[in-house]
């Protein structure tokens, strides 16, 4: 399972999102997933190699057409939102 957290440049918002995805996976006892943080340019290149892309709502249209499940997140610091999204996608 490869999960990619995407923000504009891959240095700020997506890093926080990646941290929280990893925390949520731990809390859900889900093993065997890798999580990486990238910017939109890199995401357009590698996105189709991922199983799941999580990103903020604004960036969803830019990632349109990639062959992965794209999950919009409203607030990247909201652990409940992230956990719920992962449960729906993984379990």
């Amino acid at each position: 399972m490869r999960i990619v957290a995407v923000c504009g440049l891959g240095y700020g918002t997506s890093v926080i999102l990646k941290n929280n995805i990893e925390k949520a996976l731990l809390a859900l006892d889900y093993e065997g997933a890798t999580v990486e943080a990238v910017g939109v340019a890199e995401a357009r290149q590698i996105g189709s190699l991922a199983n799941i892309i999580m990103t903020t709502e604004e960036l969803v249209p830019i990632l349109d057409g990639l062959n992965a499940e794209i999950i919009p997140i409203r607030h990247v610091i909201d652990m409940d939102e992230i956990k719920k999204a992962l449960v729906k996608a993984l379990l």
């Binding site: 923000c7 504009g8 440049l9 700020g12 926080i16 910017g39 604004e58 960036l59 607030h75 610091i77």
Partner: peptide, 21 residues
């Protein structure tokens, strides 16, 4: 960055994390 990509840097209501590359 925001002009190009929108306000995705708003982490939660009230708080934004701005930066460039």
């Amino acid at each position: 960055v925001i002009e190009k990509l929108g306000p995705y840097i708003v982490l939660v209501e009230g708080f934004a994390l701005a930066h460039a590359a």
